[in-house]
Design a protein around this nucleic acid. Structure first.
Lengths: 174, 174
DNA sequence: TATTAATACATCGGTATCGAGGTATAGGGT
DNA sequence: ACCCTATACCTCGATACCGATGTATTAATA
């Protein structure tokens, strides 16, 4: 998720680490903060893997900046991660939103559509958080108001997303 | 999140690891699967910390079962984790849902209400995934259909949850 | 008869993440 | 004179997690 966000932001324009940090904080930080001590090693990982290159510039006010640029391999890697996301990128909303945030970087509408359809298929599976044997329970069948809340909220999300997915898939010219 | 789920399930009744695994898979597995190699070490951690005790029983069909029972310290620990959740338990939906799934274990309606209010306060903060400087952007202001989707879905979730939270807080007799 | 699935647990190496702390510089407040 | 905040990067130890793999037994299936 973090690596995807780094690649995604750098796909548009080179950035130094500190700026990257602020953009990632804006994107996902209010839900799932990323520590500095996670970001810098992640950058090093991607650099070591040849996905990005580092150029040192004098800092605007403080220490020298390390301006990060995606290599060709890095650009390919982002497109690959967006084209064939990990199953967790589809099922987990945090990760799915990161995919969505950068899906525009796929220039092929058909490829974008395939990704949206995977999410659609996931949401169309009958799944719950609570079961009676194998049968998924509905909110109305639960006594616990908090568990009922989970199902109520999840259902509202699911409905909104299904509508949006179907509209967007259609508009991509499926 | 995993530890909370383990403590939460065992609060009701002793279970062996394999059964625990199935219950956790039902609760959060469709969104965020938990590997076996994560669960068993987590159980050991909690055992080592004195939060649960293990009793060996002959297995129904296969290897002997390790039936896990919460200790008094374990019961206190669950109540503590529910009473004062980590900020991430409030902001991250995956973790928040786990808190909600077991919030009934707090016998004090006032304490439950405090937790719901923390989530309410979080959702009421003006936050977006995308900004123009400091100003959160609305879905309508975005060209990218996928980023617009993120905001559309997030807004629908937020609306549904705010409604539910306010109703539930009121019904708890706030 | 062979194989697969389900039950039931466990270890091991590799990696991702976090919190705490460290090293600088510059500007503004008190 | 002092401290705080923001900029800008980094290290280190601890831990949590994952995938791969291992060990055993029973029941169903091909």
């Amino acid at each position: 998720m973090l690596e995807l966000a780094i690649l995604g932001f750098l796909y548009d324009t080179p950035l130094h680490g500190y700026e990257l940090r602020k953009r990632i904080a804006a994107l996902t930080g209010h839900v799932k903060p990323v520590a500095e001590s996670t970001l810098y090693p992640a950058i090093k990982r991607l650099e070591k893997a040849g996905l990005l290159a580092r150029a040192t510039e004098p800092g605007a006010v403080a220490a020298p900046r390390h301006v990060l640029t995606l290599t060709d391999a890095g650009r390919r890697e982002l497109r690959h991660r967006l084209t064939e996301p990990d199953p967790r990128d589809i099922s987990d909303e945090n990760r799915w939103f990161t995919v969505l945030a950068f899906l525009r970087h796929l220039d092929d509408a058909a490829a974008q559509s395939v990704v949206l359809r995977r999410r659609l298929a996931f949401l169309e599976e009958p799944a719950s958080f609570f079961y009676d044997g194998d049968r998924p329970l509905r909110a109305e069948e639960l006594d616990d108001p908090f568990r009922r809340g989970i199902l109520t909220i999840a259902r509202a999300t699911s409905r909104a997303e299904l509508t949006w997915l179907r509209e967007t898939i259609a508009s991509l010219g499926g």
